[in-house]
Design a protein around this nucleic acid. Structure first.
Length: 644
RNA sequence: GCCAUUGUAGCUCAGUGGUAGAGCACUUCCUUGGUAAGGAAGAGGUCGUGAGUUCGAUUCUCAUCAACGGCUCCA
């Protein structure tokens, strides 16, 4: 007999060799039907695998992350089985679960897969699932495994086997399909009730662009049709919040073939948002002791040779234009320009920290396949600043930057974010990173220290630093689940020396400052793209391009509307009159759809009483008040930069 | 940059080897209506661009550009 400890602390005895599935069945048949896998002593196992020793046990179902990923992993195998039956000679690479479903990479031997094939595969998968094929685990020796795949002529699985040792190799078989796999899997394919293969994509073998391109098929499955339907509905919702769609509908930005890929044109509404964001940044930076500067969009080649950017990033800079035998580049970053401003006047330790801020326009020739709406563009406006400070000042400065991030997150209601401490990879010194091992260690420790001392939660990620120093990237998620890097906060020990930046210290010695690069609001492009999805286009009052729409019941009241408009304009509130000869219902509907925060409905009664009827977007009628009252409240809401 | 898909009116989309349609938006007229769509008429496209096949191409083929989905990349 063995002792099994359950998550609630209960301990029960079972016969040696009992499986999690049998235990579940002993509790209830209903539970047993839902069990997908089991966590045995913290390890995820097949639910049907016998347990021979005392263990802690957690039954995993659809509600558990591991249960879900096991389900999707098994679904990938089911898909592979279907693919094998429809595409003879297919060879598989890997098929893991992902955040929303699974994929399997495969070599179709020159054959092409189409959307129609996906539908056929879905049918085949459903058919196979109905047969309730059990997933059978088999431990196998490396020699036998190699023999199996050699006979099959599968070089991909043989490649995988190279890195595996005897004793850790297992095969899983369901129906006609056998795969090298460490598992675990769900008990049988019959649990997979709803199947949707979502798309076909290319993916480099082992993620290396020098390798062969494999075919990757993505899919998602569910234990019931209802859940699939809900998932599809969610995708529909996400589509409506897509910043590219909203950006067009709300007149924020546009792209034009004649301008060029990745070069957005900011429409008047979008420009208002840009100006409001810059106002916020200027106010915040003013308080933080930053000085504003403006620098040119181009510079001589030599500047980027000095900074060290050119050898690292030449391919992603627009090619140079040559004038009088000198090459000029469009700037891809603002730092070298700011360094030159630091160097323009003699500096003493009394001038430090020296903080320069600029909403700098940069041009980056991003690979064509990288371009993505506003999120990834070739012309960007960066909320950039550089802080030149001593090592002693570093902690306070870095902390102040961190605090600034948090202040912004509060204003914009960004609740979910992850700070990623990006470190260098020692083996790539001199290639991807500046070859200064001691300085890397020192600055990485400095940054880690700030995060720890300020109790900032963070994760460490290796091999993601900038070439000149470690950095903190802030990862955020838009409400439709899109993940991206918003802000970045970097330490730079390299460029100060390269530019021979110096200040005179207390001992009358020349010293090189540390440089902090920071961009809490990222770029206008990415941030506004994010905000569009974050707010679903319903901007808070302070950001809304049009804040108030005046809706006269009929054009008899246009004159009164004009006096209201004038009052609003005098109070710096962005307002418009809907002077079309439409019914009030139509005017309200159009204003609601344009996501304008406030509507002032005026008719005979309002004119007689010298009032306005206030209506809030999405909330409906709020009743009557004087225009002065409305202006007072609206101005307060704007100056508070209120989110809701 | 690589693999796959898509490109028709301002927007969303239908359609065809014989030089194109809907809804919304737009213009004009009628309507002056009280909290999410009043009515009528009209204007608008050399079907992404270039070449080829064909008596004839928006439709078929190729190339090219762009967008979208991934991969790789992101100072």
């Amino acid at each position: 007999m063995i002792k099994i400890t359950f998550p609630d602390g209960a301990v029960r005895e079972y016969e040696t060799g009992i499986s999690a599935l049998q235990i579940a069945r002993s509790i209830s048949e209903g539970l047993a039907k839902k069990v997908l896998a089991a966590s045995v002593n913290g390890q995820v196992w097949d639910a049907g695998r016998p347990i021979y020793q005392d263990a802690s046990l957690k039954l995993l179902t659809w509600g558990d992350t591991e249960g879900k990923s096991t389900f999707w992993h098994s679904s990938a195998h089911l898909m592979a089985e279907a693919v094998e039956s429809l595409f003879e000679g297919v060879k598989f690479w890997v098929g893991p679960p992902v955040e929303n479903g699974f994929y399997y990479d495969m070599d179709l031997g020159g054959k092409q897969m189409t959307e129609e094939d996906l539908r056929k595969l879905e049918v085949k998968m459903t058919e196979l699932a109905r047969q309730q094929e059990a997933f059978q685990r088999k431990e196998i020796s490396k020699a036998d495994a190699i023999q199996y795949f050699t006979e099959k002529g599968d070089e991909y699985k043989l490649d995988l086997l190279q890195n595996l040792q005897d004793g850790e190799i297992t095969f899983y078989t369901q129906g006609q399909f056998t795969d090298l796999c460490r598992g675990p899997h769900i008990p049988h394919t019959g649990l997979i009730k709803a199947i949707r293969l979502t798309n076909i994509a290319g993916a480099y073998w082992k993620g290396d662009e020098r390798n062969k391109m494999l075919t990757r098929v993505y899919g998602v499955t569910f234990p019931s049709q209802k859940e699939l339907d809900e998932y599809l509905a969610l995708l529909e919702e996400a589509k409506k919040r897509d910043h590219r769609k909203l950006g067009k509908e709300l007149g924020i930005f546009t792209m034009d073939d004649d301008i060029g890929p990745g070069l957005p044109l900011w429409l008047p509404n979008g420009t208002i948002i840009i100006e409001e964001l810059e106002k916020l940044a200027k106010q915040t930076e003013e308080k933080g002791g930053y000085k504003r500067v403006v620098t040119p969009h181009i510079a001589k080649e030599n500047l980027y040779l000095t900074s060290g950017h050119l050898p690292y990033y030449q391919d992603s800079m627009y090619p140079p234009m040559e004038l009088d035998g000198v090459k000029y580049y469009l700037k891809a970053m603002n730092c070298p320009h700011h360094h030159k401003i630091f160097a323009a006047e003699q500096k003493s330790y009394k001038d430090l920290p020296f903080r320069l801020a600029e909403y700098g326009t940069c041009y980056r020739y991003e690979q064509s396949g990288e371009l993505f709406g506003l999120m990834r563009v070739r012309c960007l406006h960066m909320n950039d600043a550089h802080i030149y400070c001593t090592k002693e000042q570093f902690y306070e400065e870095f902390k102040a930057v961190n605090d600034m991030y948090l202040k912004y997150f509060k204003i914009f209601g960004i609740g979910k974010y992850v700070m990623r401490l990006s470190l260098h990879e020692p083996s790539k010194l001199g290639k991807k990173y500046v070859d200064e091992p001691a300085l890397w260690k020192e600055t990485e420790a400095l940054v880690r220290d700030v995060l720890i001392r300020t109790n900032t939660p963070f994760v460490e990620v290796p091999d993601e630093a900038a070439f000149y120093g470690p950095k903190i990237d802030v990862q955020i998620w838009s409400t439709i689940g899109r993940e991206f890097t918003l802000a970045t906060n970097q330490v730079d020990f390299a460029q100060g020396r390269r530019f021979k930046l110096e200040f005179t210290n207390r001992d009358n010695q020349a010293e090189t400052p540390l440089i902090i690069h920071r961009a809490p609001l990222g770029t206008h492009e990415r941030f506004i793209g994010f905000l569009l999805e974050h707010y679903a286009g319903k901007f808070p009052l302070w950001l809304a391009p049009v804040q108030v729409k005046i809706l006269p019941i009929s054009d008899k009241f246009l004159e009164y509307a004009q006096t209201l408009l004038q009052s609003l304009k005098n109070a710096d509130i962005r307002a418009e009159i809907d002077d079309r000869s439409e019914k009030i219902g139509k005017k309200i509907r159009d204003t609601e759809l344009a996501k304008i925060p406030y509507m002032l409905v005026i008719g005979e009664k309002e004119v007689a009483e010298n009032l306005v009827s206030l209506r809030k977007q999405g909330k409906g009628d709020l009743g009557k008040r004087t225009i002065e009252e409305f202006i007072r409240d609206a101005r307060q809401e704007i100056s508070d930069r209120r989110g809701e």
